[in-house]
Design a protein around this nucleic acid. Sequence first.
DNA 1: TAGATTGTTAATCGATTAACAATC
DNA 2: TAGATTGTTAATCGATTAACAATC
Lengths: 289, 289
Amino acid sequence: MHPPADPDPHRRVNPQVREGFSLCELVPVPLRLIDGQADGASMGKVVDGGGEGAAEVTGIESSGRLPWRKATLARRDIPDAVVSRLPGYLQVLTDLAAAGERTIPSAELAVRSGVGPATLRKDLAHLGSTGTRGVGYQVDPLIATLRDCLGLNRPWRVVIIGAGHLGRALAAYPGFTERGFSLAGIVDVDAAAIGTRVGGVTIRHTDDLAELIADPPSTMAVIAVPALAAQRAADQAIALGVTGILNFAPVVLNVPASVEVRNVDLSTELQILAFHAGQPPADEHQEVS
Amino acid sequence: MHPPADPDPHRRVNPQVREGFSLCELVPVPLRLIDGQADGASMGKVVDGGGEGAAEVTGIESSGRLPWRKATLARRDIPDAVVSRLPGYLQVLTDLAAAGERTIPSAELAVRSGVGPATLRKDLAHLGSTGTRGVGYQVDPLIATLRDCLGLNRPWRVVIIGAGHLGRALAAYPGFTERGFSLAGIVDVDAAAIGTRVGGVTIRHTDDLAELIADPPSTMAVIAVPALAAQRAADQAIALGVTGILNFAPVVLNVPASVEVRNVDLSTELQILAFHAGQPPADEHQEVS
DNA sequence: TAGATTGTTAATCGATTAACAATC
DNA sequence: TAGATTGTTAATCGATTAACAATC
């Protein structure tokens, strides 16, 4: 009935530890910390962190005893597969809101999002139940919940590294700012490009990256440089505090586990299409099993 | 140890039948066909196709009794998750070949590809075992096998629909032709753009799409138009015989099951990064479970 | 109430991983 | 042979799906 599961090539990184810990809604769940014993082989002992800081979604370890915020989401608990579908739901819901819809049943939202209704309801249940039995989901509150979950209510500043055709196209992409990402700047090493205006900013030299990222701070970088320059670009960005990288270069970036990388590779996608195009065509009237 | 599984948002389509059938190496497996009864509700009856045509990877239903080609691969049998990793392996291997490497053990190829060694070996086993115990994999033969499997030994012509910033950047992207895809042309409806040269071709009007796709035939299209125009572009391309679509517009395309769609959405990726950036930072010394 | 639709369970399905016998 | 590394098995893990009780 549905496209089979397919692990996300966009999240591929060199094997690294990526262990999370869980937060629960409204319940002060302590951070799980490893105590200090440097015992490499055995498992770290889980220590009760004392109930502090877990509700603060920015992940900054709190120094004082914060009042328990109404944590809207158990964000750590959401599987990656679910997270990757949330932007799609948000997109569809935004369109629905613009069209004046107030509520929508899961069946319809699912069709418009390209997923099954069971998957949709289970996904949304991860955000805390927002639906009403017999009615469906309220569009506006669900949008708010999704935006909150994805962290889109804070400003995100993004730098683009590489001002070739692709970098400039990305800088000029309106969807960038439409969805709350603001372009901090774009850099390149090519003297011919520097000084050109694109997407509301002026292309600067890569040497200015530190300055650009620092104030106000950017935490996301888009890498749009040739493959050979990509690792260096990533290293620079990470050294300057970037924790999220969208990589368009066809290389596996080596990054610390604290940095999230998503890869987008045009030719990978074309090759996957080639594979399928080379297959015997799926018969439209094929048996449904 | 590894990034968790993550279903591939790039393959999301409206729920449609996507049933395959299997080919086995060297064994003439008949196509499974549904007989003609137009019985909508009940399941189609599976009919033995008589053993013809299954080995022809182009998927054109053969009219005569073809000799059984030595089918190098059971391409239908390869899980999507595996297929999505093959281009990455090919990329790494190509780099290794350029560096003069003759053989490579799975452990090293795995690290360079950002996957685990067990996954790598299991993936390659799907292509027929090409490794040598105690030695590793031979680079050049493995490249040949991968290219064969992905269907990269045939010419693939691609049309780009939409000549905005992104469409033009894609047209100019060298990786396009470097990996065996040739740009058939690029079209737009904007009179100001038509006539401009980009990536070795001249931007033509969308009305010329039929002509462009027909001769020589293109089977792949890249959609780089605004969201509102994407479905229409897809419909046009599909009507003209395109069976693979790389969609950059943030919409779920409605296509027949015989058409493969892969979605690339910049803002989706940024939103996923935002989610992770909003999380408590993964502790580098976190417990390994 | 009756109809509709959610939230959740349990079953299925598929992908990943560790481990090791096979074998170069 | 001894060492190295594959191919494959079996176990684990996670994601999807169908179905239905809960409930608006």
